[in-house]
Write a protein that binds this DNA or RNA. Structure first.
Lengths: 250, 250
DNA sequence: TATTTCTTTGCATGTTTGTGCCTCCTTGTT
DNA sequence: AACAAGGAGGCACAAACATGCAAAGAAATA
């Protein structure tokens, strides 16, 4: 693995996990701790990360847990959410899973909205505490803390007894040919199930997730009804529209 | 846990709770008091907090009357929680329902705690997001927003398949003769069920809830194993002890 | 291709940092 | 005044670190 490649990986890991421990990186990247230390030192002097004893921290807002992570207002996500709002109407049964983009959407739901929201994500449920006319149904399970959703057999079985008009799916990776994928198989299973019990499926994706792939396939992209993106090239747009997906990009 | 991370956590706690006790922080963050003292000293010299004997205070605007009252309230709950911590050990299966006192307790659980927490309250689940060695099992249901707990038939049925070593019950009303009661029958049902699947039951009550009653009975007081209170008169204490309850009031 | 030069990496070395424990001192409370 | 709780400073140890050096590759040049 090239040095530059490795350092980029380190940056990605720091951004994703908000902190890294040098010895940990050494094992994950299969190089000596000395090399990692040299990398961290270099990245720190470039100002990309903040070096601390025994590891490094992400620069910028000192965030650590999920609840504070949501506070970072992201204009892109907010714009996506605004577009998605057009597809949400009163008296729908919505199924919403985890992810910061979905959470942003829930925050932007009008307080006057009437309907039902089914979710396996505690933060989503809490964000709806002021929506007096929305009935919130939580699906239980084992809490997966990294993405703050309930997963497992209990979650799966609970979904067996439900249905929804619109599933708002949180996306990690999407590729027009490979489909929608995610790094954790347990999440893939639940998302697939959720899609199968919903009449329509809507997904919001930021550009950095377009045309990326990871280990576990959720479903092909043509399971989506609506795909909401930032501006994309016309040919990419066509690629999705050919599959019958309504793509909203402006 | 990284030093910087820990110090940031301390800052967050100080800002949240306006005052901290060194020995409490030691437990919550699972490091020695010496380390905490060093942290506080450092943060004080940075001017982020104000170091005082036995702990630290939040810097900034002097406390107003209203928030002072709020603080005293919190302090009571925090004290109750500290006493309750003695009954919680590694590798237990805890069942924790809703309520601000229970939430306070969860915030004060040591980060190093190992075990399982079953809960029907999304805020409780979220408060455990940093406890890496605690498996959180959420019980689903219909979210009752007023007290932020999941209730209903799904909740009841999920509880049928579980058991716990210790149930930490949130209390609204308690009277030595009438028993434990609550204004909502749906909550009473779930609490009763929770008590029935747990080996021991612990409850924390502030004085304003002692000797009060409301419509729906959860169970008689003798279903409690431990009752943690503020200081109470000896005769009230005897009243409970006569029922075989361990009462902790100091 | 062969040779030189430069970069990257891992290892060995002493050094520094972070933490817990201990002892003795200080502070606050009866 | 007596006593407990909290704190300061020193010690010890392990983990993390910087530095120098040599081997192994790359890249460049002849």
């Amino acid at each position: 693995m090239l040095k530059q490649e490795r350092q980029q990986t380190i940056i990605d890991i720091v951004n994703e996990e908000h902190k890294v421990i040098a010895s940990d990186l050494s094992r994950r990247l299969s190089v000596s701790e000395d090399t990692i230390r040299r990398d961290l030192k270099e990245l720190d002097s470039q100002g990309v990360i903040k070096r601390v004893h025994s590891g490094a921290l992400r620069k910028g807002p000192p965030v650590q847990d999920f609840s504070t992570r949501q506070e970072i207002f992201n204009e892109t996500k907010s714009n996506l959410a605004n577009k998605a709002l057009h597809y949400i109407e009163d008296d729908m049964v919505l199924l919403i899973d985890g992810g910061t983009t979905n959470l942003q959407l829930v925050h932007q739901l009008p307080l006057s909205l009437k309907g039902t929201v089914i979710t396996n994500s505690p933060p989503i449920a809490m964000a709806l505490s002021n929506h007096t006319d929305v009935e919130v149904i939580m699906i239980g399970g084992t809490l997966f803390k990294q993405s703050m959703v309930n997963l497992g057999i209990d979650t799966y079985e609970a979904l067996n007894t439900m249905r929804a008009d619109l599933y708002i799916m949180g996306i990690y990776n999407i590729d027009p040919e490979i489909g929608i994928s995610i790094p954790r198989s347990s999440e893939a299973l639940i998302k697939r199930k959720m899609a199968s019990i919903s009449t329509e499926v809507l997904a919001m994706v930021t550009n950095d997730k377009l045309d990326t792939v990871s280990n576990h396939i959720v479903c092909p992209t043509d399971h989506l009804t609506y795909l909401i993106t930032e501006n994309v090239h016309a040919d990419i747009k066509r690629l999705y529209e050919k599959q019958g997906i309504t793509i909203i990009d402006q």
